[in-house]
Design a protein around this nucleic acid. Structure first.
Lengths: 302, 302
DNA sequence: TCGGTAATATCACTAAAGCAGATAGAAAAC
DNA sequence: GTTTTCTATCTGCTTTAGTGATATTACCGA
């Protein structure tokens, strides 16, 4: 059974004529006859009464239901890919805690408004996990800190973050080496790229290691920071967004340490579902509003 | 897009390998490659990651939903016709009022118990209308009085009825010619074959014409008969079934007039949907329980 | 970094199927 | 009874599918 045959069959059913069906689908009558006969042979039943008007037999009517289902699914699939008037299906996004909290809401809102059919699944985790999930196919795309070194992945610079050293308010100046050495650092669980910055910061100040408390959520970490439990390193925008809720303050860091770019990474664009492609579009337009876009695409293996 | 390609695509998705998919569907790996590549070309997107495990891309996952829908509909259609484990769909039956009331209930009950998926639509009318509906395709089959003369239709003798003259109780003997001439006859609306029998009965007794009242339902007719409004001709079994509810009685008629066969008629068997074919089966077994079956099939135009 | 291994891609060839045009046959309309 | 209109069949051509052998690529371990 072929979709072509079913298409012709439905045309015959609707027009009541083999020649009309042939014209509608831009072929010849003998071809229609051949397809209908083949269908009848496969199903072991006559589908069309040929006397006078070509009317469907009872068997033919029974087939229409299934033929219509197949053709509908086919047309929808084709429309989804070729046209792409509306994206649908599932979109699994991975992102860091800070990105999720600060950057994604407006982006997701805009995307969802335009493509309400897409079922968005958001998964939060540190950069290392995100990359693993992406490679394992557990997410369709991810927002990670720093550029992905791996080949065969497409990367788009999404957001630029300025990391600051966060501690209990007030913080007038950078803590001394002694203070840093004596204090605890608060970080997300293993794999968070910001945590690497903490270690970079420590080495920058000549401190080799420090006590580190791991947290699972941003709120818990900020709460502990305001309570004076220790210092942490977070994007400035994140801190400013939460500063009114917690008694925290920050000092800016040296630029080489502070600057971190968040990249949108996914497999190559030609593997994207329409839902993912539209999401990348939405991201690009968001990025374009703030800064000139910078595309870093991997070598495409034609 | 071909169902064959989608079948291979799903096999690749499930097995994670081109060679495994080829083995499962009894073909060779190069063929799988060709089909997948063709699909990818048609949709303009890469569907499968080839590195290591053959995993689906995001686009590929989006396709699976539609592919599954198409293949499901295909499998169901095939199962419906070839196997026929369960009939489904719609079955439109036409029947005379008396047949509907007396003969169909047990048949329909048995059929519905076995094939609950079938949506049965019952349409009642006189024989002439039934034949017209059948030829126009408004019903899939019909129970009519007398054999259908038309070619290209399959007929199966379903029930034998013994017509009797019905009047208000008590009826000791056949009314005289004068009584018949003076009385009114009650019949279904134009086209009812039993009504022809009334006219035949009258001519048998030398009466050329009589006043006839037309009714739409059996109950109304029997009610009027019990009230002494006039006589009617009905199957003996029907009268006996309603005798306890109405004050009616009957006398038997001369055999050449009394005997009427009810035939099951439909288009030729090779045009039957599974639902219709199973219904004919059910009817045959019902008939076989009562009398040796008698098949009168039209010449099949191979 | 270099082979070995296991996977997919490509190629050449054969077979089959699809398609178009012409024609024959059958039914309906006049 | 003739004409018209429709479907079935036939023939040749073109395209496509399927097979098996071979090339290429990626991955893995030494």
């Amino acid at each position: 059974m072929q979709l072509k045959s079913l298409r012709l069959f439905m045309a015959v059913a609707e027009t009541g004529s083999f020649v009309a069906a042939a014209q509608r689908l831009h072929t010849v009558q003998s071809n229609v006859t051949a397809h209908i006969k083949k269908l009848e042979g496969e199903l072991g039943a006559q589908l069309v009464h040929r006397t006078g008007q070509a009317r469907l037999t009872t068997a033919g009517m029974a087939l229409t239901e299934y033929a219509q289902r197949m053709l509908n699914a086919h047309d929808e699939a084709l429309a989804l890919f070729e046209g792409s008037p509306h994206a649908s299906g599932r979109l699994r996004i991975g992102a860091m805690e800070t990105t999720t909290a600060l950057r994604l809401p407006p982006l997701l809102a805009a995307y969802h408004a335009e493509y309400p059919e897409v079922n968005i699944q958001l998964r939060t985790g540190p950069t290392a996990d995100l990359i693993e999930w992406l490679m394992e196919g557990q997410v369709d795309c991810a927002f990670v800190a720093g550029q992905l070194e791996h080949r065969r992945y497409h990367a788009l610079k999404a957001f630029s973050e300025e990391l600051v050293l966060v501690g209990p308010a007030p913080m007038a100046a950078m803590p001394t080496v002694e203070e840093l050495l004596a204090s605890t650092f608060l970080a997300f669980r293993q794999g968070c790229s910001y945590r690497q910055r903490i270690e970079l910061l420590l080495s920058f100040h000549g401190v080799s290691a420090a006590r580190i408390f791991e947290f699972g959520t941003l709120d818990a970490m900020l709460g502990c920071a305001s309570a004076g439990m220790g210092y942490t390193v977070l994007p400035k925008a994140t801190v400013e967004a939460h500063q009114h809720r917690f008694g925290i303050d920050y000092v800016e860091l040296e630029r080489t340490i502070a600057h971190v770019d968040t990249y949108f990474v996914a497999a190559e664009p030609n593997t994207w579902s329409p839902a993912l492609a539209r999401f990348a579009d939405a991201l690009r337009s968001t990025v374009a509003d703030e800064a000139p876009p910078l595309f870093i695409s991997s070598r495409s293996h034609a």
